[in-house]
Design a protein around this nucleic acid. Sequence first.
RNA 1: GUGGCCAUCGUUCAAUGGUUAGGACCGUGGUUUGUGGAGCCGCAGAUGAGGGUUCAAUUCCCUCUGGCCACCCCA
Length: 422
Amino acid sequence: MSGFQAPRGMRDLFGADAAAAAHVESAAYAAAEAAGYQRIVSPIAEESALFERGIGGSSDVVSKELYRLAPHSEESTPLSLRPEATAGILRAYIQHGMRSAPQPVRLVTVAPFFRHDRPQKGRYRQFTQFNVEAIGDAGPGIDIEVIELGASFLVGLGLRDVEVHFNSVGCATCRPAYAAALTAHFAPIEGELGEVDRIRLRENPLRLLDSKDPAAVRRSESAPSLPGHLCADCAAHAAAVRQGLAAIGVALVDAPRLVRGLDYYARSAWEYLLPGEQGQQGALGGGGRYDGLAELIGGSATPAIGFAIGIDRVVHALQDRGITIGEVASRLVVVCGIDEGSLAARIGLASTLRTAGISARADVSTRKIGKQLEGAARNTAVAVIIIEPDGRLSLRIMADGKQAEPADEASVLRAVAALLKR
RNA sequence: GUGGCCAUCGUUCAAUGGUUAGGACCGUGGUUUGUGGAGCCGCAGAUGAGGGUUCAAUUCCCUCUGGCCACCCCA
């Protein structure tokens, strides 16, 4: 016994879990590609500085949770495992001059990300995200498209009660005034706040709105409202997004305290939530408009919007609700044989079947035919082909146990094809 | 990162400060040598790791590792 186990917060997926994850991932790609989004596969690691500038060096994600790779030499540029997708994708957009492509550039990726966080169900150190980014359009039409895309993906999987919580966080024009008003509102009770909230008061007052500290919660109730402080442009944008989504049947839940911590976010911010779940379990994903990010990482000003949905959480939600996914009726044919001497022939015939588009595997054991049939049955095979000692083939249909008289390969192949067509 | 609960074959449950830690499922072999998921009979398989207390530790204590929950953060 080696005693090795998977690293903390990182999982082996196999059997039904792997099938479910694969199914959700395919559904994600299918949904986005059907909407004209192109796949992007970007590196699993980027320069650490990209995340430090793009996400914010003081954020938890960067300051505490980043997997920093040990440099190979002193001259090496420090790299980190990506904790999220947006910075890398936007870096690719800038690096490859995608601004000369038709705008917006619509991109999708389903890929693993890494954060050194304390694991919990639905929160892993290696997790898989469905990311959609639309870069180069200031909306509001693209906002409507992206928000709807994520919602209909979740509904399409069977999560019909998913809620879209929506807010506008303003822009560089109107948010500073609101932040100042918030600071003024909370300042009188600074002494009652916890340490975390006091730091927020100074550095990021918007975050006070979703604090769970009782003192902050109480004070939030009388706080000036974010929607009331939007500038005319932001208010018009938010109204257009709301109206557009309403027009196509996507219900929004107004979430005036839904905020984003970082300055480059602007206007639309939303989350996909499952009601009735505690804590982060119900938070399937979130999105936002990050108009200020491209400039931060060295590009020209570029409006952009996107969302991230946690594949792991979607799978958990589906499993918790008993929604079966990724289960496909078996189409497998197993090739067995009476003699040991037929081993190579079994494998060859299985290959021939696969070439003909039929899922097939050989029984490569030297077990007796009874055991081979048992194995095929437990594998939920639809049919078994038995290689007789004389080289002829018997086709046995597992559902009813009917077995045809031995015949030659060509006619058995026809029979199998006909069987599977039904 | 903080706090709490937890850790026995692959899985799910037992038991115990002292001989071989038990069952079920799964796996595997047989069932007198060619027909399937059953039955019967076998076989294999565990006290997460490292320390400590003790004559003796799987059991008590500590640390580590891992899981779950809350906080935090977020997907």
